[in-house]
């Protein structure tokens, strides 16, 4: 078994799992953080995107042992009890998600982008979301939502 202790959404968590456990399985099966989805399990669809040490990555492409001691943010770590994250709020307002399965991954990718680049161009947003497949084809509304969230995060617009 592989013992891991890591920070998930600001909280220290530990588990002992078989070495072949992926970060995604660790999050979903050990910690019941099911917001990160298993879509393809090979790093193509982006439904499992989480932020590790500040960078968005595919949770299905990391082993649990590799994240020992590292900092992980999942979709569950974005909203507070009082309020949604501006990106989540924008996604709701713009009805950016249809079936919703790709949503948590897309929102995490968007957060990864806005954390590094508060004023992205449309092309930069497209590039940041290119690792997130949406089969309901809702990209237009997602891009609009990311732009809106960016305006709110920059303080140019009041949150609705």
């Amino acid at each position: 078994m592989t013992d891991v202790t890591l920070t998930i959404n600001g909280e220290e968590r530990s588990a002992s799992v078989p070495p072949e456990t992926s970060l995604l399985r660790l999050l979903r099966d050990e910690f019941y953080l099911t917001g990160s989805k298993l879509g393809c399990d090979v790093g193509d669809c982006g439904a499992c995107t989480v932020i590790v040490d500040g960078m968005p990555v595919n949770a299905c492409l990391m082993l649990a042992g590799q994240v020992d001691g590292r900092d992980v943010v999942t979709i569950e770590g974005l909203a507070t009890l009082e309020d949604l994250h501006p990106i989540q709020k924008a996604f709701e307002e713009f009805a950016s998600l249809q079936c919703g399965f790709c949503g948590p991954g897309v929102i995490i990718s968007a957060k990864g982008l806005l954390d590094r680049n508060p004023d992205p161009t449309k092309e930069e947003i497209k590039d940041a979301l290119s690792g997130n497949l949406c089969r309901c084809t809702g990209y237009t509304k997602m891009i609009e939502a990311v732009q809106d969230a960016a305006r709110i995060l920059r303080g140019e617009k009041e949150a609705a």
């Binding site: 099911t34 917001g35 298993l38 990106i87 009805a95 998600l97 919703g100 949503g103 948590p104």
Partner: peptide
């Protein structure tokens, strides 16, 4: 203008699809 009633849960990652049920 209308918002989807399920939009908030989707964005929070709280929608329970089958694989999220144990």
């Amino acid at each position: 203008r209308a918002t989807r009633p399920d939009g908030r849960l989707h964005g929070l990652g709280q929608t329970k699809y089958i694989d999220d049920i144990t």
